[in-house]
Design a binder for these strands. Structure first.
Lengths: 198, 198
DNA sequence: CCCATTCTATGACCATCGTCATAGGGCTGT
DNA sequence: ACAGCCCTATGACGATGGTCATAGAATGGG
């Protein structure tokens, strides 16, 4: 698996993001990344002279851009776009994975933040940039649905915060309850903000 | 610091929880815990024959009980108890820490979940129990403020999820923005649920 | 055909860490 | 004083992991 990407470098970044989700940064070995990516171990030091730190930072950046693009993709697939429907789709990505593949993986951004925010400055900056790359398209989507400009950023932050926290709770409980709960409880609030100015 | 607790055992559990917050499970060494707790290293194998796994699990349990008790304490200190005020106080615990002590630490439950949920079954169970020990008193408090029984659990889950996610975003951004945002945006929703049945 | 650049291969080094083994203090009760 | 128990002390072991050094392919332009 994980053989789709083009070059070995890209595959390694992708695999790193994938493995980050499971056990966090420290539990993810460089050799393990190479194996998972079906990439030669010798390429690690060639493509990532900055070592593990660089690889993790790029994986985080990749994850942030992926999340940002996914917002647009989900939005485009909605029959009638409403904030609650978008959020429900974002949540559904996770409930689907958990119900079909188990609760092994979480969000790579959360993993990198939890493990590195207090110790590795460059990785912390990478996570901040990644969250920004996720929040911005989401806020723009909300604005496009009628949410006033001043609220869009706040609601996007609320959506992502709730989702991240619910992912953690779901993994702990091995139950998607927390995810479905935040989706259900937050939906009306989001749609209300889109309906009329708040 | 961290010398208040009674026995060395209790201090080590407390210190483990403290250190977990910084770099996660893998980044927290047993020797480091002993040093931080000002406890003899030889006591580790004596008090925690189950090794690191046991120590981490007890630290997680301690954190869960602490969070549960803190809900009651914050509630009692509120001049006029409303759900939004309680949530604001929960959030304020974190903004206060971050503004005075920096963004070094996150939530130990999140750290243990991110690092161990997919690999260490006993730790995952400990995190689930800890979240339950936190959610239950919170839901009870909401019920006591007029939230209908069916909504209390859901809103407690929403509050904790949002808080956990906002903690992660705040650490990434080194800014309490996400925390204050979720508090402000969620407040009206919580109070509305307490006012009349939903 | 050659050379330079890019990529890969692999073994070794060193630090760290969890764990264990073994032994030593220090107290209590009799 | 002795026995027994709880706690502490400390060195060693084995494993893991990130990084480095060095060398070997492979590719592509001249």
């Amino acid at each position: 698996m994980a053989t789709s990407g083009r070059g070995p470098r890209e595959r390694m970044v992708f695999s790193a993001a994938q493995l980050l989700r499971r056990g966090g940064v420290a539990a993810t070995g460089m050799r393990e990344v190479a194996v998972h990516a079906a990439a030669p171990r010798g390429s690690l030091q060639h493509y990532f002279p900055g070592g593990k730190e660089q690889l993790v930072n790029e994986a985080v950046g990749w994850a942030g851009r992926y999340a940002g693009k996914r917002v647009a993709r989900l939005l485009a697939a909605l029959p009638e776009p409403t904030p609650s429907a978008l959020f429900a789709e974002m949540v559904r990505q996770w409930t689907d994975e958990y119900e079909t593949a188990g609760f092994a993986g979480g969000c790579p951004l959360a993993a990198a933040t939890v493990d590195c925010a207090g110790t590795t400055a460059s990785t912390r900056e990478a996570t901040a940039a990644a969250f920004a790359a996720w929040t911005a398209p989401l806020a723009a989507a909300l604005t496009g649905m009628g949410v006033p400009g001043g609220r869009s950023d706040a609601l996007a932050t609320l959506m992502i915060s709730s989702l991240e926290g619910a992912i953690i709770m779901a993994r702990a409980e091995q139950d998607v309850r927390a995810l479905t709960t935040v989706s259900r409880e937050l939906g009306p609030l989001l749609d209300a903000a889109a309906g009329k100015a708040g």
